[in-house]
Write a protein that binds this DNA or RNA. Structure first.
Lengths: 203, 203
DNA sequence: GTCTATATGCTGATAGAC
DNA sequence: GTCTATCAGCATATAGAC
């Protein structure tokens, strides 16, 4: 991979995150990378292929990141740690949730692509089933109330992701400054942890 | 307002919901409405003005809908009822959450527009402060744990909206059929109510 | 009000010289 | 590999006849 080829990839990633797929033209990417538009197509053939490569690798990085937690017997401690990690990671990639959600919500082909790459991936399946086992055992032991693993994950992802999906609205509509946003995010993380800790506890 | 002018508005609403702002051309709208493209611009001047009118009225309808709940002294009963209503409303307008979120997340001008229309609207402010009073009193009484009204609302909206934002992904990636989706949505609503009931309860 | 025709601009993709 | 030039298509918006 040539230096220019890499620069195009990096620039494209940045622009796709900032402006989305439709909002980014191959001309923009070329200008920012310091070459002409034909070269973008020379290396990646189509805008769609360039985007798909970037998109799948970003989703992969999120999943990788989450997979790297190990269970030590303390369910709520681990959940707290997982949320801490996940929250901080997204905080450093604030546009990522919308990029992913946009594809999930509007792009049928991408959903099929993601099914192939992630749902049907044996490695990912193993991680999911391992977590599923943990949840089932904790329910059995009475550490947490009865809940399906899938619901638990959706609850966590909903609360964390939506915090960042609505962040631009918070800034513009309630006119929060950057330091206020930081305070808000910390409070929000605590609220999410508390809601889940209480909401999942056994009766 | 002529009959055609209304038909254009209705068709545009449907198409914007299905395909979003960028994905809908004024030519599409004209074809579907049974007229030529120039007429769309004759009545609404620009695509942006047509979209803004539809968008603001849809957001207004959601807020109106939610405002129509009355407090009867039973906080958790009312919350349950509110979620029931809200969940069912969105279930009949499944694309609405994404349409709104897309504007919130990507369109700076729209955020300012929404601030002007909804945040700075005295009627809306009254409804918010009334609800805020209820929450404060219930915290005081010990019905629910200490929580800010804003956090409470974000929790509810996050859990309900994200259910529908991720629905297309569920259908394609986990290959759920339409009856399975209905079952899933009912289970999901129960899970959300349970999580909030337990998660908001006093210690 | 309604139409046809068109101006103007941007897009992704490719052909072909070097 | 890198460039310039260009094609074909679609978009929004408008001018002007009726």
């Amino acid at each position: 991979m040539t230096e220019l080829e890499m620069r195009i990839l990096e620039v494209a990633e940045q622009l796709f995150l900032e402006r989305g797929f439709a909002g980014t033209s191959t001309t923009d990417i070329a200008r920012e990378a310091g070459c002409n538009q034909a070269l973008v197509h020379y290396y990646y053939r189509t805008k769609e292929r360039l985007f798909a490569q970037i998109f799948l690798s970003k989703v992969d990085s999120v999943l990788e990141y989450i997979d790297h937690y190990t269970y030590n017997g303390d369910f709520f401690g681990c959940l707290r740690q997982l949320i801490d990690f996940y929250f901080d990671y997204i905080n450093h990639h604030r546009r990522l949730p919308f990029l992913i959600l946009n594809e999930l919500a509007t792009n049928h082909d991408r959903r099929l692509q993601m099914r192939e790459f992630f749902v049907e991936n044996p490695q990912r399946q193993r991680v999911y089933f391992a977590f599923d086992e943990v949840v089932k055992q904790e329910v059995e032991k009475g550490t947490i109330r009865h809940i399906e693993t899938f619901d638990l994950l959706i609850d966590v992802v909903s609360l964390v992701a939506m915090t960042f999906l609505t962040l631009p609205a918070l800034q513009d509509m309630l006119q929060k400054s950057e330091p206020e946003v930081d305070t808000y995010l910390n409070k929000r993380k605590e609220e999410i942890c508390l809601l889940l800790a209480k909401g999942l506890s056994a009766d």
